[in-house]
Design a protein around this nucleic acid. Structure first.
Length: 476
RNA sequence: GGCGCAUUCGUCUAGGGGCCUAGGACGCCGCCCUCUCACGGCGGUAACACGGGUUCAAAUCCCGUAUGCGCUACCA
């Protein structure tokens, strides 16, 4: 098995899933998982991108057995391969200019034929002499048979047939001698003894070309499986403009690596009609290429979110606390919040554990503890909707809390419940204003625990501030 | 334009001739639980792209149409 990304950007969600499928198969079958960077395009490939891809793979928990190999470091191998192809007469030098090539393709298109380039394979000595004089260098093209067809016996799609007449004489080496993708990929798959190539469906039309190269070199092509693409909500191939499209985006948003792995596995694959939450070991054991779907799948981040929330809730409290703190530290959450912030966050961990769906939601739930009181519009509206009532219940709450000695979860609950009954309120109408009064939000950590964590002084201060603002309104 | 591939609830999917009155999950809606938002539980909503065949019987097989996507570079 192998995963062979081009280091021209971050690890795309689709790429991550391709890597995952390959990895699952390798681990399931005891095969070898090879990592290979296809960086023959020196213009676009960067070391930063390579490092990022490796980092994301590790983050996801995908480890490789061999590599990372870089095609840029294997040029002799490709040169040798091209020489062998030349010797076998499988490739030929193509002297056509870009303009000539374009003209050929446009003409074919205009005549409703396949825009297939068939280079001129024989030139006069005069022409050759002229090219040499001009310093023109040829690109080497594979001489595709005009007759016949190549059929891919694809694991997920069955037999896929390509007529040779539809396949152009693809370039295998640039005029500067550097290898091109279809050559390098084929040579590597052969040379690295790759037995199964599992990759995105976007590569399916390259496959016959790579099979030709391998056969031209006297090898036997590996088995292929082309997995369906991952789409954005608009059904177009998932990309940056769809929001979270790279593994890093998901990491930054506070998803757990395993949630991502689990969710990715379920895009285009299913074990049965019920299984959704599966451990790494279960995924490895259950996965099979035969159950991979043929049709593309829309990536629904909401589902990832739900799954992530479930995994978070499944964690042991300690593990959750550490995970949360690590995330907040890493994202720089504490940098501007003073020395006590981390301790406070640790204490708040149990209060948010059941409520979070992703780690980055922490701030919207508990962030109010780290800031002076400020009201979200909607929350303030809810108080203002009935100022008199708000003053009454918040005042009632304050009255009891400011004289409460046992300022604990239990103590607070007792006193507030009591007040609730005295005022003849229902829980919702009484407790909501209390929540808003101290957090400024409608959704937050649980109210009793929150007050305990805040402490009496700060609680009282916030109550008074809210009451003051409401009183102003009332008098006006 | 050419070639290739695909098409089951809004989304991910189960299904491979009778077990389908099409199952599950997410979303959405409703109810319940909880002295609070959330979490959780229960219920509901909602799909075989269309048209022809084949067959006693088709979501399942065949053909066509439509639509979508991919590829169509001296990118990978």
């Amino acid at each position: 098995m192998r995963f062979a990304p081009s280091p021209t950007g971050s690890l795309h969600v689709g790429g991550a899933r391709t890597a995952l499928f390959n990895w699952l198969i390798a681990r399931n079958t005891g095969g070898t998982f090879v990592l290979r960077l296809e960086d023959t395009d020196r213009e676009r490939s960067t070391p930063e991108s390579e490092a990022e891809i490796l980092r994301c793979l590790r983050w996801l928990g995908l480890d490789w057995d061999e590599g990372p190999f870089r095609q840029s470091e294997r040029s002799e191998i490709y040169t040798t391969a091209v020489e062998r192809l030349k010797a076998a007469g499988a490739v030929y030098p193509s002297w056509e200019t870009d303009a000539e090539l374009n003209a050929m393709r446009e003409e074919a298109r205009a005549n409703k034929r396949a825009p297939v380039v068939r280079g001129r394979r024989h030139w006069s000595d005069d022409d050759l002499g002229r090219f040499a004089a001009e310093g023109r260098k040829p690109v080497w093209r594979f001489a595709v048979d005009v007759e016949g067809q190549t059929v891919i016996d694809d694991y997920v799609r069955g037999a896929v047939t390509f007529e040779h007449a539809q396949i152009e004489d693809f370039a295998v080496a640039r005029s500067d001698g550097t290898p091109m993708y279809n050559l390098a990929a084929a040579v590597d798959d052969m040379e690295m003894n790759i037995t199964h190539v599992v990759r995105g469906e976007d590569h399916i039309s390259n496959t016959p070309k790579q099979m030709m190269v391998i056969r031209g070199l006297g090898g036997t092509p590996p088995a292929y499986a082309h997995i369906p693409l991952i789409l954005g909500p608009d059904k177009k191939r998932l990309s940056k403009r769809h929001g979270a499209a790279s593994t890093e985006d998901l990491e930054v948003k506070g998803y757990q690596p395993h949630s991502v792995m689990n969710a990715l596995a379920l895009l285009g694959w299913s074990y049965d009609d019920k299984s959704t939450m599966m451990s790494k070991d279960e995924l490895i054991e259950n996965f099979s290429i035969a159950r991979v779907s043929k049709s593309p799948a829309v990536f629904d981040e909401k589902k990832l979110q739900v799954m992530n929330g479930r995994y978070l809730r499944l964690m042991e409290p300690d593990e959750f606390e550490e995970t949360l703190i690590a995330f907040l530290t890493q994202t720089g959450y504490f940098t501007d919040k003073g020395p006590a912030a981390e301790a406070l966050a640790r204490q708040s961990a149990p209060l948010v554990k059941r409520k979070l769906t992703t780690l980055d939601e922490y701030d919207s739930l508990a962030g109010w503890m780290f800031r002076p009181l400020e009201f979200e519009d909607e929350a303030w509206e809810s108080l203002v909707a009935d100022v008199r009532h708000s003053i009454q219940v918040i005042g009632g709450g304050l009255g009891r809390l400011e004289v409460l000695d046992d300022f604990t979860n239990a103590g607070i609950k007792e006193v507030l419940s009591d007040q609730l009954h005295i005022l003849g309120e229902n829980a919702r109408e009484f407790l909501e204003p209390q929540r808003v009064a101290i957090t400024g939000q409608k959704i937050s950590t649980g109210i009793y625990e929150s007050l305990e964590l805040l402490g009496r002084d700060e609680t009282v201060k916030r109550y008074r501030e809210t009451l003051g603002r409401l009183a102003e309104l009332w008098n006006a």
